[in-house]
Nucleic acid binder design. Structure first.
Lengths: 347, 347
DNA sequence: GATAAAAGTGCAAACGTTTGAATAGGGCAA
DNA sequence: TTGCCCTATTCAAACGTTTGCACTTTTATC
């Protein structure tokens, strides 16, 4: 009948009761007669009553909504993270509001502003590649607002992070290549603004050192864009210009690894016989390639889920940000596939 | 100083003015002296004032938030849709709240309920595979609440849809296989609950008829799960059991197509010489496979963007749902790659 | 039959904002 | 002085809930 949604007041009018009685009856508060409760619920049902969460938010200064700020949605890893966030948030009665920054600092700043305006209870952030200063985060953190960072850990003291052991993952991947008999291992590195890039590079370097191989700076190629074309081009150039050709590639991402595979194929090199390749992230398609691409798998869903659990625990005061463990490191797992299996190939 | 955020009242107290004056000053209403405006803005800035969008929502009965209900986030196509939605919503000043159903009807129903409770202004929906009855949508549509469906069009008269021309895409893909000289074309079909599955199957059938090829029911295999393993198994079985082996596969999704490619390889058949394969959706990885997989590309970003534009236009009354065009069909594009190029291979 | 306790319900304020209407003070013409 | 119009500001209600307190009525106790 009415235009908008039925409210508590409408029910009150209908039954000649006060709004407070309706509110209490609906919530099964003690002190309301069973008969009244029954009638209220019946009418509520009939009028298709749906509590107005906005009014509740205003009253309680709690919105039961968390924000997620992410560089890109169209990204296998991040989409798995979102999935994990959504799953936990939903199961604990929270909504998820989403913003993607497209790796732009400006979008990051405006997103967090809008979200705060919308009274979110907390936010999960993976900051953009452009972000070098973290004031827009510290400003709100200082006000006691809960932020949990994931994947990309910011240079903020005492910030709460959920990340993957990028160093160890890279170390494992590089070690694996060495143990398979590859000697000249090139690293396709990510932008230096991201801690994960640096960690992965360090893992790579330390693995080489561990096995007594000298780190060759010319073998570390930075791929700022992280696209397949970029990887393909840079690797092609390297192969063309370098007298002693590299015989393995460890890329900081899977897409770059595919680029490397293509460049190698272009140069007539066979994978894994002539050259080994390992990627990072273990995107879905790794198992579909020919040969299947070895990669360091990152538990995206788990990361999203754990980060959300921590955030909600902080929001609900089950966890105290000042005394809690600040960093949660999740383990990676090297998925050894054909692209790096020189040894088994020899059999 | 204070615990929470500064409010209009705080500014009012600070300047010994009333809340209404502050509100008007901040919005540059006429009738407020320039001097007052200046002072108000200065203090607002200093106190780090941030308007409370929740209070505004309550007042205006408008939340400037739209919902997106989607089967899965970890899905290339859907993630591109989300990206398009986010882009347009953001540029027009709206928030996006996200829910994934994991293809469960129950989640779909509870998601829309929660969103309505949260006073969203409208919702974009791609319904789940489990959904057979649409009452939970018609109920809210009848109340005049704006819903735009995308990709999967529901059986609801007058519902507003943005979809892809699945029929034409399938027709094109099948025609392409025929023109390349393949004769026994198998179709890996999707669940019959989805209109897109039926449309694609019809496109396949009609293309066969168009070229005078009889439709063989045994060549239509339904893959309810749509996983790679499922495709691989079903195709392997078919190849093993069928005396006259099929020489091409048109799959209703890319993952199934990869399964088919693997099964063919397992059976010692060469792609594209012995068997042609075409997928649907043109996921990122298609161009990374060996051979590269031909596929029907769906404009996911555009679909998200257009659906959002339509939804916001309805919300903002720029478009009238009763008189507007109900269905927007976006074109697909066949990406012809090596997996289906028998002819050029022969040269 | 008085008194107290218990049961059931209503009042009113609060959350932060907007907005139509009212008010105060000043200037100016008649 | 009166009357009128400006300008700048305030009042108060409204959006839909919740909740401490007060109020009425019934029931129990002595």
């Amino acid at each position: 009948m009415k235009l908008g949604q039925a409210t508590i007041k409408d029910i009150a009018r209908e039954l000649n009761l006060s709004a407070s009685t309706i509110s209490r009856a609906l919530k099964d508060y003690p002190g309301i007669s069973d008969e009244t409760k029954r009638r209220v619920k019946e009418i509520a049902e009939k009028m298709n009553y749906r509590p107005n969460a906005i009014a509740l938010s205003l009253r309680k200064s709690r919105s039961f909504t968390i924000g997620v700020i992410i560089p890109e949605v169209v990204h296998f890893f991040f989409s798995t993270v979102i999935s994990g966030v959504e799953e936990i948030a939903n199961s604990r009665g929270y909504n998820v509001i989403l913003a993607q920054t497209n790796e732009k600092l400006e979008r990051e700043i405006s997103s967090i502003e809008t979200m705060l305006s919308n009274q979110i209870d907390g936010v999960l952030v993976s900051y953009s590649k452009e972000t070098k200063s973290f004031e827009h985060f510290t400003k709100v953190l200082d006000q006691g607002f809960p932020i949990v960072f994931f994947d990309r850990a910011p240079a903020i003291p005492d910030a709460i992070n959920v990340m993957v052991d990028d160093y160890q993952g890279a170390f494992d991947a590089t070690s694996h290549l060495i143990l398979q008999g590859y000697k000249n291992i090139v690293h396709l590195a990510g932008p230096k603004t991201l801690k994960i890039s640096i960690d992965r590079e360090n893992g790579y370097k330390d693995a080489l050192k561990r096995y007594g191989i000298e780190v060759n700076p010319a073998y570390i190629i930075t791929c700022p864009k992280g696209t397949m074309e970029e990887g393909r081009e840079l690797v092609s150039e390297l192969l063309a210009s370098h007298p002693e050709k590299p015989d393995a590639f460890f890329s900081c991402n899977d897409i770059g690894a595919v680029g490397a595979m293509m460049a190698c194929r272009d140069a007539g090199m066979k994978i894994p016989e002539d050259v080994g390749v390992v990627g990072f992230s273990d995107w879905q398609f790794c198992a579909m390639l020919e040969p299947q691409l070895s990669s360091v798998s990152q538990p995206g869903f788990l990361m999203g889920a754990r980060a959300t659990e921590i955030l909600l625990d902080i929001i609900e005061k089950k966890l105290d940000p000042s005394t809690m463990e600040k960093t949660l490191v999740l383990e990676t797992k090297l998925m050894e596939r054909d692209s790096s299996k020189k040894l088994s190939q020899k059999n």
